[in-house]
Simulated assay, not measured.
Amino acid sequence: MMENLIGETHRPGRIEVVCGSMFSGKTEELIRRMKRAKFARQRVEIFKPSIDKRYSDEDVVSHDKNIIPCTPVDSSATILLLSSDMEVVGIDEAQFLDEGLVDVCNQLANKGVRVIVAGLDMDFKGVPFGPMPALCAIADEVTKVHAICVRCGALAYASHRLVKNDKQVMLGEKTEYEPLCRECYQKAVGKEKCEEDAGTAENNA
């Protein structure tokens, strides 16, 4: 046990990525790791994209309402500027930040900082989202967390959008998104495509 504690205290710089669909517990896991680092009296700072105002402007809040104060940022470069004396840096909703985040995380880790990143690995179309794929590639550790499919109870694979909006970035909660397994996601997308094709055919008739 003592060896584990010493290891946590003297860990070299590293990048840890927590990814998955919506409602999978990504933010919950990020908050848990950050609170443990604070309990160990490490110098910590957590950041999130300033566009994410769903629960709070200046807190990271999980769907279960666990809260930790954070600093909202408009760009990844700001994270580098504000992390000069930090030992642990947390970044929530990383998919909304720019591609420069990959280099920022690498620079921090190379300086001995433990970087913990949480974000959606895919958008509502099942496409890899923002800088997340590259972050997974360079990470020392990747944790894939899963929600439960609301239609069949299997492990969720993707975040299915419930409203008609083709923009990649659309903030929302349970009224806008649902976690689905691969099979249920394919059925839902297929049904929507059929309905769309039928609507198009009707308009052209």
Rank of each mutant, 00 (worst) to 15 (best):
Q168R: 15
S159N: 12
H160I: 00
C136Q: 14
Q168Y: 06
T78C: 04
A158K: 13
F39D: 04
Y177Q: 12
M132E: 05
L162T: 06
D85Q: 14
S62E: 05
L120E: 09
L97N: 05
R114D: 00
E141D: 08
R114Q: 10
V145Y: 11
A158V: 01
D59M: 14
G100I: 01
K167M: 06
V163L: 13
V150T: 15
D52G: 10
V61P: 07
S62Q: 04
D140W: 03
V150S: 15
D64W: 05
V127W: 08
S56Y: 03
D103P: 00
S84A: 13
G119Y: 10
M86T: 01
T175Q: 13
E45I: 11
Q42L: 15
V60A: 04
D92P: 02
A156D: 06
A77N: 13
I91Q: 03
H146L: 01
S50I: 09
S62R: 09
K65A: 10
P128I: 09
I79G: 11
V127L: 09
G90W: 01
D123I: 03
A118L: 10
I79T: 08
L171V: 13
R43F: 02
G90K: 00
C105Q: 06
R54C: 03
H160P: 00
F96R: 04
K164P: 00
V73C: 08
F129E: 02
D64N: 15
L82H: 14
